[in-house]
Simulated assay, not measured.
Amino acid sequence: MRYVAPAREAVDPSVFALAPLNGWLDYADWLHGVEWPLIDELNARWPINARERFVAQTRELLDDGLHYEERIAQRGLIATREANWHDLFNAMIWLRYPQLKRALNRQQVADVASFGRRERSRAQYAQTHFDEAGVIVTLKDPSLLELWDRHDWHALFWQRRAAWMDGSILMHVFGHALLEHALMPSKLLVGKALVVMADSQAHGEESVSCCANAIVDGRWLRDPLELRPLPLSGIPGWHVANVDETFHRAAACYQPLREGRSYPAPLRLSR
């Protein structure tokens, strides 16, 4: 069933104090306000030298004949539906992670040129999955990746619960659909993750650049199966029920590893 975000006036303001939305408080005026932010307000947050701009998605705009991604690449115009949660969160992602967004756009446009505007490649599906539900996870302990790759969710989220709070794991939520789904705190969220292994001194921002470079170079996001599922609702503070061990034994977001399923080696952050 297709997800329909709640109306603005129906959103419980308390959701903005919960993960992942509590990580976006620099946009609190757009999220908490009674009125939707205007396109001009979104554009006012760009750096002066940014080439992209948000523009209202109108019939006139769409009649230019360009694919959504082509319009960004050629004209710097990001078609944005007004009074729409999905597109508001997309704008916020653009403003916070422009390097990643530009990397995805570059690869999407290359595949549109190769496959046309109606067909989609495996790489395009991977890029779209990451754009909608992507998470960048930096791990500083290889044993955590072993648990993750086995889908040993009880061990990863309960037995190693402290790792999600002590800096052993760093996360950047990139998928704007994840933020939209988080408007309903009862929903169980699952992200599509790119994983970066790093040393104890690494910062999450370094991992973002590492992933963006790998996407631009064509080394990453060439197939949806590269992405590791990550049940975000198991992370401390992401779902009210996960303080109880029983959640980590039976939560619907915890899917077993399919027979024959394996994941590629993570990126490695080199200094």
Rank of each mutant, 00 (worst) to 15 (best):
W164V: 13
M165A: 15
D166N: 10
G167P: 03
G167C: 10
G167M: 04
S168D: 11
M171E: 09
M171A: 13
H172M: 08
V173Q: 12
F174G: 10
G175M: 08
G175H: 07
G175N: 01
G175Q: 05
A177T: 13
L178C: 00
L178E: 05
L178V: 10
L179S: 04
E180F: 05
E180P: 04
H181C: 12
A182Y: 03
L183F: 06
M184F: 15
M184T: 15
P185N: 03
P185Q: 01
S186C: 12
K187A: 13
K187T: 15
L188M: 12
L189F: 01
L189W: 06
L189P: 00
K192Y: 08
K192C: 08
K192H: 07
K192P: 05
A193S: 10
A193F: 04
L194Y: 10
L194M: 10
L194T: 08
V196R: 02
M197L: 09
M197I: 11
S200Y: 09
Q201M: 15
Q201F: 13
Q201S: 14
A202K: 05
H203M: 08
H203I: 10
G204T: 07
G204N: 04
E205M: 03
E205R: 00
E205S: 01
S207W: 08
S207M: 04
V208Y: 06
C210V: 08
C210D: 10
C211V: 13
A212F: 02
A212V: 00
A212C: 05
N213T: 10
N213K: 13
A214H: 12
I215D: 04
I215T: 06
I215C: 02
V216I: 12
V216M: 11
G218S: 02
R219G: 09
W220M: 14
W220P: 06
W220A: 14
R222N: 14
R222F: 08
